[in-house]
Computed example of a mutant assay.
Amino acid sequence: MVKTIIWFIYFGLYLLGTVPALMKVKSLDQQGRIQERDKIIHQTARGWAKSLVNFTGAQIQVTGEENIPKEGSVLFVSNHQGNFDIPILLGFIDKPKAFIAKKELKKIPILRTWMEYMQCVFIDRQDARQSLKAINRGTELLKEGYSQVIFPEGTRSEDGTIGEFKAGSLKLALKANVPIIPISIKGSYNMMPKGDWKIKAAKVEVIISPAVSTENVAVKESNELTDRVREIIAAKL
């Protein structure tokens, strides 16, 4: 428990330490210097996320990064094992990315502002209308060149097994006509088991599968595409 308390203190102090960079980002945004803004956002967010994961003592092994296109936006689709999935993907996969994230994260000061500048989309899973608006916003951002990450299960796994993907959860990739990058995360649920706030060191594998093209796939075929991507992810677990 002591380790967990120290980690949360570190989390808060590091977040406070990013305020000068956040002010720089705000200034660049107001000046319309978007490329400079986005570079600082990526560097700061990646460094912060990687530091948080490393502080737990976890060992992260990433394979398949060569499957990620260097140019253009993509939709990363991943299974969801634990609270550390976001910092793992943010810190250990170099391509800039934002997240389709639960609205509860908006309650954390400073983090909320960083996520907004990163072009994250906050979703209320209990509000179907808001969820639709969030998905439409995610589509717009993909078209604008901002890669997104989505966890189609909608919630974390209790034991590491993969759940069902929400129907139509990958429609934004079809509407934006961007590749889907399937990601299989193995072992992150051991870092903080669901329902337990104790942080533990763990070995985690992040397996990036080859891109799935959305070319010539109709929106009405989104459920079949969702099933196909889930099978790819599950096969590596």
Rank of each mutant, 00 (worst) to 15 (best):
K143M: 13
V178W: 04
I123Y: 00
F11L: 14
V53L: 11
M118L: 08
D196M: 15
L170C: 10
A101S: 11
T161Y: 05
N177V: 06
S51P: 05
L225R: 03
A167S: 13
S209C: 02
Q30Y: 05
L105S: 01
A201V: 13
E164V: 02
I9Q: 04
K3N: 15
R37I: 07
V77W: 08
E116S: 04
L75G: 06
G17H: 03
K70R: 12
K97F: 05
M118K: 01
A134V: 04
N223Q: 14
G32W: 14
I135K: 01
I181Q: 02
F122P: 00
D85A: 13
I162M: 04
M23L: 13
G32Y: 14
P87K: 06
K220I: 14
V219F: 09
F99V: 05
D127N: 12
I6W: 06
Q31F: 10
E116H: 03
S73P: 07
Q126T: 07
L22P: 01
E215L: 13
K133S: 10
Y10D: 08
L28Q: 03
M1G: 14
A234E: 05
F92L: 02
L174H: 04
S222R: 13
E140A: 14
S213V: 13
A49I: 11
T44V: 13
M1C: 12
I68L: 02
M115W: 03
K102L: 08
E215T: 11
V121H: 00
V77T: 09
L141H: 03
F11H: 07
W48L: 13
R46H: 07
K200Y: 15
F99S: 02
F11K: 05
L225V: 13
A101K: 00
F55A: 15
S213F: 11
I180D: 02
I207P: 01
E215S: 13
K143S: 09
A235F: 02
D29A: 10
G12T: 08
E65P: 00
G47F: 01
S147T: 08
A98Y: 00
I135T: 08
Q148R: 06
D94N: 05
N54G: 08
G195M: 12
V19A: 03
T4G: 14
F11I: 12
K102V: 09
A21M: 06
T4C: 15
Y14I: 10
L111D: 02
Q43S: 08
N54V: 09
R125T: 10
Q31A: 15
D127R: 03
I108S: 00
T155I: 08
I181S: 04
A218F: 11
R46M: 09
E221P: 01
K97L: 11
E65Q: 09
S222A: 15
L13A: 11
R112S: 12
A128F: 11
F122I: 04
K3R: 15
V121C: 04
D29N: 07
L174A: 10
P182W: 06
Y10G: 07
G145L: 08
N67A: 09
G72S: 09
K186N: 14
T44F: 03
F11M: 12
S169K: 04
N216D: 14
F8L: 06
I207F: 04
C120D: 03
L75Q: 07
G154Q: 08
P87S: 11
G168E: 14
V204L: 10
T44H: 01
L22S: 04
Q61A: 12
I162L: 03
M118H: 02
